[in-house]
C-alpha cells in the first residue's frame, strides 16, 4: 500500500511539472462536471436536429458542438490539460494529417 501511494505521489509530481495551470490534478468533482457538460451538449446536439429553425446552420452547429465535446474529453478525461505538451502535439499532428488528407480527397472526388 505504501509503495502504491508513493507511485501515486510520483505521478502527481510529474503531472504537476507538465501543467501550465495552478492545479496539479483533476478532481472527481471536475470529472463529474465534465460528464454533466457532455450530457447537456449531447442533448443540445439532438435538439438542434429537431428544431426546424436551426436547419440552415445545422452542419456548423453540430460540428461546433461535437468539437466542444471532443475538447472536454481530451482536456479532462485524457488529462491533456495537465499532462506533457508532447501528447497534445501528437494528437494535433494526427488530427491535422487526418483532417487535411480526407477533406482534400473529399474535395477532389466529385
Amino acid at each position: 500500500m505504501a509503495e502504491h501511494q508513493s507511485q501515486a505521489a510520483a505521478v502527481h509530481h510529474r503531472a504537476g511539472q507538465g501543467g501550465k495551470g495552478t492545479e496539479r490534478t483533476i478532481t472527481p468533482k471536475q470529472y463529474f462536471t465534465v460528464a454533466a457538460i457532455l450530457a447537456v451538449v449531447t442533448a443540445l446536439e439532438v435538439a438542434v436536429v429537431y428544431i426546424e429553425a436551426m436547419r440552415p446552420v445545422l452542419v456548423p452547429a453540430l460540428l461546433f458542438l461535437s468539437f466542444l465535446k471532443f475538447l472536454f474529453v481530451v482536456m479532462y478525461f485524457m488529462h491533456l490539460r495537465i499532462d506533457k505538451a508532447i501528447f497534445s502535439v501528437l494528437l494535433v499532428t494526427g488530427l491535422i494529417m487526418g483532417l487535411g488528407t480526407f477533406i482534400a480527397i473529399g474535395a477532389i472526388i466529385p
Partner: peptide, 21 residues
C-alpha cells in the same frame, strides 16, 4: 499509446472520409 491514437486518427479518418464521400 498517444502515438497509436495519432495513427488511429488516420485510420478512422479514412473510414469516416469514405462514408462521407
Amino acid at each position: 499509446m498517444w502515438l497509436f491514437i495519432a495513427s488511429d486518427c488516420m485510420f478512422f479518418g479514412a473510414l469516416i472520409g469514405t462514408y462521407l464521400i
